[in-house]
Amino acid sequence: MSNGMEHMRKLTYREAVREAMRDALRKDERVFLMGEDVGRYGGCFAVSKGLIEEFGPERIRDTPLCESTFVGAGIGAALGGMRPIVEIMTVNFSLLAADQILNNTATYLHMSGGLFNVPLIIRMATGGGRQLAAQHSHCLSGWYAHIPGIKVLTPATVEDARGMLWTALDDPDPVLIFENSGLYNMEGFLPIDAGPVDIDSARVRRAGKDLTIISYSASLFKALDAAETLSKEGIEAEVIDLRTLRPLDERTFLDSAARTHRVLIVDEGWRSGSISAEVSARIMEKAFFELDAAVERICSAEVPMPYAKHLEEAALPRMEKIIEVVRKMVRSHG
């Protein structure tokens, strides 16, 4: 008997990203990958393992340890008609290329009076939870979402890891893709013929009526796990995956807020000036009279990420905390 699974296959998030790149490299000869250790080493997180054997060092290029240089080279290549995929090892190192990203990539279309699009993809690992301490663990995707002129994608699922890249390459403008390093080993099922997915909408990952949890990237799964536990207590939480932090698909979460009237945002970024602050503000601005409770947020502690395992866990959003806050929000008034 068919259960639909014969058309599915199991793969990791890492394999999904690799497959997306392989697919793009095969389909479009303008596509190439460059970054630190992406070639012979196979990538710091082993994402590009095997690609240099298949596509050669011309298209899988190792770069010097100088982010501003190779991001700049990526911009030049994109302006010259190529479709570069630039990998930055972690988001913390992207700050060395902040000038290229913010002052150049994001502004060229504007500064050239609409003449020069920059079809550049920048992929980077982000997020904590792997004991990599304060200089390799931060979640700055929301921080980049502040910048007009770029798109900010945060694929959480294997499907999005597989499908977002091609759509991003099709986009004439720069796109940043944030891959949470904690997700690389996560396994998921994907249709055998899985292909591109849209990059401009949020998704309801779990329907519920009592409260909406809005999250993205790795925190999404904490929210989904919390929702499962809460369901056993009779609290049905709706869980929304933002998927793209810029531009924000506010329609999806405003509609959800209008259904449930209570919203919790789970954001691995720091609270102050975060994407959760932006989402909360938009709900307040555009769905004020739908709210039956103040929008709540669970974010990372506002400290440099601790190295010690128990302290790192305490600093990140936790499932137990989500459950606790949801209970309070739903039940505080009987």
């Binding site: 004020f288 009279f289 739908e290 709210l291 039956d292 505080s332 008034h333």
Partner: peptide, 26 residues
């Protein structure tokens, strides 16, 4: 709450006559 206010307005319920069940009487 804003939603409570909206509902009250839609149904012409006088909020002043209601007793809130929130922790502080909200």
């Amino acid at each position: 709450s804003p939603y409570a206010r909206r509902l009250a307005a839609e149904h012409s319920i006088d909020l002043g006559a209601l007793r809130g069940t929130g922790p502080q009487g909200e």
